[in-house]
Amino acid sequence: MARELQVKYFNDTIYICGKHKEMVDKMWEKNVASNSFFKRLIDLYAVAAVVGLKIGNRAEEDRSPDRRNIQLEQIAGFEQQLNTIMKMILLLDESDGLSEQDRIERAFRKPETQEQVQERMELFNSYARAGIEFLYTELVERTTDINDIYTDARVANIVALLDNEELVGE
């Protein structure tokens, strides 16, 4: 019997596919801190969603079969944080042309149907994918230069990202 999903966000395995999976692999390796920018994949996913929202970009899913997934157990322990980010997205995302009041309603009322959940999860994921692309460019592809205070590329790129005007400017 098919599992009946509760009508709520972050209630299922999250998949990161294709090019985004490739990018993620360059930023996180399980249990190898020195090859990672993030402790867990879910951390990368959360940061990416906020980054995507901040830069106002969304990215299409690459539907290649190669994928990496974030297990439900990991998500469950991180649900509160993800939901807070989801609320921010539902509040600030203007792609549906909804009024502010409607976006507030959307953010703070529970979803009523699975369709709503799927649709909003896709919204969340599209921001996360754009965030992954941005993080990849800034953490992996960026090369250090004379203006960097730090000589280790990983450290320099993390600090540069924290100082990135596009991300931290009002």
């Binding site: 867990r40 951390d43 959360a46 906020v50 901040k54 993390i158 924290l162 991300l167 931290v168």
Partner: peptide, 12 residues
């Protein structure tokens, strides 16, 4: 850095 979603959220 893994908690940096908090940091980046601040500007929002």
């Amino acid at each position: 850095f893994s908690d940096s979603y908090k940091y980046f959220s601040a500007s929002l």
